[in-house]
């Protein structure tokens, strides 16, 4: 995997909003697990963990994330944000915006976001964002923003169970994407959004999210512990929660649940 080295990635970061230590592994259990372990130690904000393949690639609640070698990007970035924990959820939306911006920059393809952070093209999932943080009292000790992005994997090589619901940039535009260039673009775009959040405002990040959302102003289904709600997705609130309006006019905000677009 000569295409994916720390040196090449660092040479392609353009904006340089902050310093980055980039670690590239041939094989690792999970870039997020590794980044969380490093962050619990003394790893600096901006440290990036990338792997050619993950043996235990995962989403939330330990769900598997298919991570074959040589084709996709598995990247986790450590942040130590100086914001109140109640705003931490915004990073979920921020991560998705960064992915959409990086894809547009590298491939010229427009992807869309389903609340809070699924990146879709043509209704199929192109990228997943996994966020984990560690909170002590009123402070976020660290936050890891993990991205799994399907780049050069043909649909035929995807696990059968996701073949109907997932896609890759190769399938979308028929072109092979340089993984190092995409990694550098992701790092750049995450940095830009973090700068927007910290020096402008969380609201500015939410505005960016609204621009790329395919969730708002439409009927959605939301399934969670409250059951299943059919409602119109109206907006997101100041913390990234999804504001829904039911048929009878009741307005409510959810912070969890699976959204289906209708």
């Amino acid at each position: 995997m000569n295409d994916l080295t720390a040196e090449i990635i660092l040479s392609r970061i353009k904006k340089r909003e902050r310093n980055h230590a980039v670690m590239v592994f041939d094989s690792i259990d999970s870039t997020n697990t590794q980044a969380m372990t490093l962050a619990t130690g003394s790893a600096a904000s901006g440290t990036v963990v990338i792997a050619d393949t993950q043996t235990g690639g995962r989403g939330r609640f330990g769900r598997a994330w298919a991570s074959p070698p040589g084709v996709n990007l598995y990247l986790s970035l450590i942040l130590r944000p100086e914001i109140a924990p109640r705003f931490a959820g915004i990073f979920s939306l921020l991560g998705a915006v960064a992915v959409v911006n990086a894809i547009r920059r590298v491939s010229g393809v427009e992807a869309f976001i389903k609340w809070p952070n699924d990146v879709l093209i043509g209704g199929r999932k192109l990228a997943g964002v996994l966020l984990e943080s560690n909170i002590a009292g009123a402070r976020i000790n660290h936050l890891v923003l993990g991205i799994g992005l399907n780049l050069n994997i043909p649909a035929a090589d995807m696990p059968v169970e996701i073949r109907e619901t997932a896609t890759s940039l190769l399938e979308v535009c028929g072109c092979v994407t340089d993984r190092a260039e995409m990694a550098a673009a992701l790092i750049d775009e995450i940095d830009s959004m973090v700068v927007l959040l910290e020096s402008i405002s969380p609201a500015a990040v939410l505005d960016e999210w609204r621009r790329h959302s395919i969730t708002l102003d439409r009927e959605v289904g939301v399934t969670g512990r409250f059951g299943h709600i059919c409602a119109k997705a109206v907006d997101v609130d100041e913390t990234g929660g999804l504001i829904l309006r039911l048929r009878d006019g009741t307005v409510l905000t959810v912070t969890s649940g699976e959204v289906t677009l209708r």
Binding site: R60, G89, V129, L131, S133, I135, G137, G240, S256
Partner: peptide, 13 residues
């Protein structure tokens, strides 16, 4: 504690 699909580890204080 999960919010917006962000899994927040909460430490004992």
């Amino acid at each position: 504690i999960e919010a917006m699909k962000l899994m927040n580890e909460i430490e004992a204080d």
